[in-house]
């Protein structure tokens, strides 16, 4: 049980970086950005290939961020300069990235077995190797959880600062009311592009961390990731509230962890892993339709009461 939860916390933390990226486009900009599916795999592919070619794992993660930002820029140009609808722009970049990712990887998957990753130094630290963690059989998880938690915390602090600055406020205004933003002299096209760049940079970083944690990068690793991101986001909002911006960011991380715990639980109960994506999609569809369900239930209750 403890191992199951620790594993969920570990995966949740790594994937929460992607959830934060999805939050920036979906909630702040109001765009469902499907680039995510390609940029998460791109992050994994770049990091794996860089490490495989002998690069430092941190440098590899940095290169992955740059790759993701470029993917975001591509979607941003398609959407704002060429006026292609946001959803379609994301799909176009996602499809293009599939070929690009194959070129980066050179084949469908690349193993990082026995290679150094960003997590290696932490796994060897004495306090993580100590008897307590080893005794519970979770020192392997702690070697990922501790650096991932620090990384996520750093990202949250950085984003909290950024979205409070003049430029960050301009991005929020663009997503909230683009006509008002333009009337206040904000170049909304640039703000949308900047948002997409930051978002996909984070998503690619998440992909790089995923590849390094699981020990391989796979061309398929992005499939369904947008739905996982949305599921985590909504779970976070429903369960952990959406008061201040800081607590919102924190709720994304908790949402991503909760999602992993739910998945681990249903798998443990004997659900076939093949049904996972169906389960996730249904969860998101249900969560997104909650407002409609709520109001129709209220109507129904009202109708029954008045009928009496």
């Amino acid at each position: 049980m403890l191992q199951m939860i620790m594993s969920a916390v570990m995966l949740g933390l790594i994937w929460s970086v992607m959830t934060i990226g999805v939050y920036i486009t979906f909630r702040i900009l109001g765009i469902a950005d499907l680039t995510v599916e390609g940029s998460i795999a791109m992050g994994g592919a770049i990091a794996a290939q860089a490490i495989y070619s002998g690069s430092d794992p941190y440098w590899a993660a940095f290169l992955a961020i740059l790759g993701g930002m470029a993917a975001g820029l591509a979607t941003g140009i398609l959407h704002t300069k060429l006026k292609i609808p946001a959803l379609l722009s994301g799909i176009l970049t996602m499809i293009a990235l599939y070929s690009i990712n194959l070129r980066i990887l050179g084949k469908a998957n690349l193993s990082l077995l026995r290679m150094n990753t960003v997590f290696s130094p932490f796994k060897e630290m004495s306090f993580i190797q100590n008897k307590a963690f080893a005794g519970w059989g979770i020192s392997h998880f702690m070697g990922v959880i501790i650096p991932a938690a620090l990384c996520v915390l750093g990202i949250i602090i950085l984003l909290y600062w950024f979205f409070g600055t003049e430029i960050g406020s301009a991005i929020r205004a663009t997503g909230n009311n683009s006509q008002m933003a333009r009337a206040q002299g904000i170049n909304t096209n640039n703000m949308i592009m900047l948002g997409l760049i930051i978002s996909n940079g984070l998503v690619a970083l998440s992909g790089a961390l995923i590849a390094q944690q699981q020990g391989f990068a796979d061309i398929q690793m992005g499939i369904g990731s947008i739905v996982i991101g949305l599921a985590s986001l909504i779970i976070g909002e429903v369960l952990f509230g959406k008061r201040g911006f800081f607590s919102r960011l924190l709720s994304l991380v908790l949402g991503a962890i909760t999602y992993r715990i739910i998945i681990a639980f249903v798998l443990d109960r004997g659900m076939s892993p093949n049904d996972l994506k169906l389960f996730t999609a249904l969860t998101v569809a249900f969560a997104l339709s909650l407002p409609v369900i709520k109001s129709s239930v209220q109507q129904l209750v009202k109708g029954i009461r008045e009928g009496r």
Binding site: F162, G164, E166
Partner: peptide, 10 residues
């Protein structure tokens, strides 16, 4: 409005 927006606090 009309000023260059920077990374100063908003």
């Amino acid at each position: 409005r009309g000023k260059r927006r920077s990374l100063r606090w908003g």
